[in-house]
Design a protein around this nucleic acid. Structure first.
Lengths: 369, 369
DNA sequence: ACCGCCGATGTAAGCGCTTTCATGTCATCA
DNA sequence: TGATGACATGAAAGCGCTTACATCGGCGGT
C-alpha cells in the first residue's frame, strides 16, 4: 500500500542499494540475496514509486501526444497505431487533447514540462516560429504528425498531392465547375490540400469562379465537422452557385456537404460529385469517395521516429511523407453505376464485400474477387 | 533547456524556497521578489520538473485510464467525455490500452505503480476477486467504467435493461424466432445484455431454439468486431437456422450480421430485423437500430467520481447506472416504412435531418420536426 | 603467510522540488 | 523604548529512488 525499498531492505536484511539492484535486474547480485529481496518485495506488495525513479534516472518512459481532437475518428485510429507500438516498447502515453487551436498552446506548454515525458508527438498543428523556438528551447525530442516544419522530424500524408489527386479525379469524371470546401484556414492539412486543388485547377485550365472556395471559421474541431461542411454548401447555394463537383478537405465535412445537397433537392453523384479526405470508418458505409490516409502507419512511424530521436538526439532531421490512396466509391461514380450499386447494397451503399473484409483485417484495400 | 529553481534563485538573488513559493503562487511573498523571480524564470525559459515536483508533493495530477480497445469508436467517444472534464481540471491522462483481455492485467499493473497517477479508471474489464484485492491493496482510487463490482465506484449503462429493451422491441415488431449474437462471453457488458435478452424471452414465453445464442471466442477486441458478428451469423445459416430477428450485443457486430444476411440473399429488415447496442457514429449512417449509451456522460461522470474519491478516499462507494435509449432506425422498421425511408435517404438511410443535427451538437436525441 | 584482486554489498550523494521551522526585520502598542 | 507580533525570507530536511564510490571477505599466486 505504500512500501518503499527501505521496507524491503529491512525485511530482507540488506541495504537499499542491493534492493535497487535486484529490482533493476542490473548488476550482479548473489542468487540468495536476489531471492530474499524478491520475496520481501512480493510479500509487501511493493510497487515502485514512478516519480522517484524518474527523478533519479532522468527518464520517464512516457511520451506525450498533443492532439487537437478535430476528428474523433482520425484521432482514434492514429492513436491505435501509436499504442500498438507503445505497448511493446514499455513506454506509456500521456494524451493532451485540445479542443481548439488555442488550447493547443496551453496543452503543449504542459507537455513540455521536464520530467513529465521523454518526447512529444505534436499533431496537426501549425508551427509558426514562436512555437518552433519554444520546442527547440525545451530540448525535448519532438515529432510532428500531420504537420510540417523543416527543423523538426515529421510524418505526414502528402496532403498537397492528395488535393491534386482528388481534384484530378473529379476532372476525369467530367466535372467543370468544382468547388472546394475547406476547414479552418489555419489548419495546415486543409491548406495543403487546397494548394493541390488550386494547382490542378490551374493546370487543367479550369475556371474557378469567385466564392467557389468556402472555408470554415469555426474554431471547434478546426472546422472539421459535419455542420461546417453543411453550412459551407448551404452558403454556396444561397448565393446561387451550383457546382458539379465538390472536394471537401475532410470526410466529416463531405458528409455535411452531401446532406446539404440532398436538402437542396439535388442528388449525389448524379447532379454533384463529392469527394472527401481521410477515409474515416464511416465513409465506407456511406459510399463516400475519398483519399485514404494510412493512419495506422502514420502513428507507428511517428513513434519509431520519436524513439530514435530519444536514443540519439543528434540524428539528422527526417520527414516521412505517405502517399494517400484514392478510394472510389459511390459519390463519384458515373450515374449508371451508381444506381446499380445503390440497389445492390441497400445498407452499405457503395461498399463491396472485399473491401469490408479488408478493412476488418486492417490491410488496406482488399482485392476484389 | 534544463534550468532549475536553483538557477532562478541565483539569478534573482533569493533562496530556492522563495522561488518555489512564487512559482506555486501560494504563500505571501513581497511584490518585488515575486517580480524578480518571475523575470528570472521567464528569461531562463524555466519549466518545472514534473517528477521532482510530484515526488515532493506526493501528488501527480495525472489519472490513468486502462482501456481495452474493443471498439475504437466507443473508446474514442468516452475518451472525449473524459478529456473535456480533464482539461478544465488541470489533470492529465495516461492511456494504457490493452488489445486483449489478458493485456489488461499487465497494463493495470503498470497503472497501479505509485506516483504515476492519482487514480485509475478501469474500463470494461471483468473484476474477479484477485483483481479486486489487487486494486484494494494498491490503495489507489479506482472507478470502474462499463463494469461492476460491489466494492468499487462504477459508472455503467444498464446493460441488462438495454438487453431487455432491445429484445422487447424485436418482439413488439412481431419477431418470433430471435437470435442473440454475443461478443466474448468473458466480456461483462455482453453477458449482462444477454441476461436481459433471456429474461424477456422467458417472460414473453418465446421459444429459444438451441444454438440461437452465438458467442465469439475471438480474444481480439473481445469479439466486438464486424468479422465476429459476421461469422456468428454465417454459422447460424450453415446450420440451417434462420431467425426473424437478431439482437447483437454491439453495433460493430450488428454490421457484420447485416453483411452476412445480405450475402445469404436475405434482406434487412424485411426478412430479418437487426438491432445492435452502443449507437456508434457509423450506426446513424447505416440506419442501424440500437440502444444508445450516453458515452460522453459516462466519461465525464467517471472523472467526477474519481476526483471526488481522490479528494476524500473514505466516501461511500457509489454506482451510477445510465439508462440506455432505444434508437429506432431502418433495420427494425416494418417493411413498408423501410422502403420509403430507403429511397428518401439514398446516402444516409434511415437518418432524419433532425437527428444529424442533434448529434453534431452532441445533445442526445434531437426532437423530430 | 602475504599481496592483490574480484565479486558482493553497503554508504552516501544526489535527482529537483516542497515545506516546516527558524531567523531576521520592522511597525505597533503600552 | 522595549516587548510583541506580523510578515518576508532562508536553512535544511525530506520525497523514494539510482548509482558512483568505498568496503570487505575470500580467493589464487608466489
Amino acid at each position: 500500500m505504500g512500501s518503499t525499498i527501505y521496507d524491503i531492505a529491512r525485511k530482507a536484511g540488506v541495504s537499499i542499494a542491493t534492493v535497487s539492484r535486484v529490482l533493476n535486474e542490473s548488476d550482479r547480485v548473489s542468487a540468495d540475496t536476489r531471492l530474499a529481496v524478491l520475496n520481501a518485495a512480493e510479500s509487501l506488495g511493493y510497487h515502485p514509486h514512478t516519480s522517484a525513479r524518474n527523478l533519479a534516472r532522468r527518464k520517464s518512459d512516457v511520451v506525450s501526444a498533443v492532439i487537437p481532437m478535430m476528428t474523433n475518428l482520425f484521432f482514434a485510429e492514429v492513436l491505435r497505431g501509436l499504442q500498438d507500438r507503445l505497448v511493446e516498447s514499455d513506454y506509456q502515453l500521456i494524451v493532451h487533447s485540445a479542443r481548439t487551436l488555442d488550447e493547443v498552446d496551453s496543452q503543449l506548454e504542459r507537455a513540455l514540462n521536464r520530467g513529465q515525458s521523454d518526447g512529444v508527438l505534436l499533431f496537426s498543428s501549425p508551427i509558426e516560429n514562436g512555437r518552433a523556438r519554444q520546442l527547440a528551447q525545451s530540448g525535448l525530442p519532438v515529432v510532428l504528425v500531420d504537420s510540417f516544419h523543416p527543423d523538426l522530424d515529421s510524418v505526414t500524408t502528402d496532403n498537397r498531392l492528395g488535393g491534386e489527386m482528388a481534384t484530378q479525379h473529379l476532372i476525369d469524371l467530367g466535372c467543370k465547375r468544382i468547388a472546394l470546401v475547406m476547414a479552418n484556414p489555419k489548419s495546415r492539412p486543409s491548406v495543403d490540400r487546397r494548394d493541390g486543388f488550386l494547382r490542378i485547377m490551374k493546370t487543367a485550365g479550369l475556371e474557378l469562379p469567385p466564392d467557389f472556395i468556402v472555408s470554415s471559421e469555426d474554431p471547434l474541431h478546426h472546422g472539421y465537422s459535419e455542420i461546417s461542411g453543411r453550412q459551407a454548401m448551404e452558403s454556396l447555394f444561397k448565393r446561387g452557385k451550383v457546382p458539379d463537383g465538390v472536394f471537401a478537405t475532410s470526410d466529416v465535412q463531405a458528409l455535411g456537404v452531401i446532406r446539404a445537397i440532398q436538402d437542396a433537392g439535388l442528388r449525389v453523384p448524379d447532379d454533384i460529385r463529392v469527394i472527401g479526405f481521410d477515409d474515416m470508418v464511416v465513409s465506407r458505409y456511406v459510399g463516400l469517395s475519398t483519399l485514404r490516409q494510412p493512419r495506422y502507419e502514420i502513428g507507428s512511424t511517428a513513434i519509431d521516429k520519436l524513439m530514435a530521436r530519444i536514443d540519439q538526439s543528434s540524428r539528422p532531421v527526417s520527414h516521412t511523407l505517405f502517399v494517400p490512396h484514392l478510394i472510389e466509391r459511390h459519390t463519384t461514380t458515373r450515374s449508371g453505376a451508381a444506381a446499380i450499386l445503390g440497389s445492390f447494397n441497400e445498407f452499405l451503399p457503395g461498399v463491396t464485400t472485399a473491401e469490408v473484409q479488408a478493412d476488418v483485417s486492417g490491410n488496406g484495400p482488399g482485392k476484389a474477387r
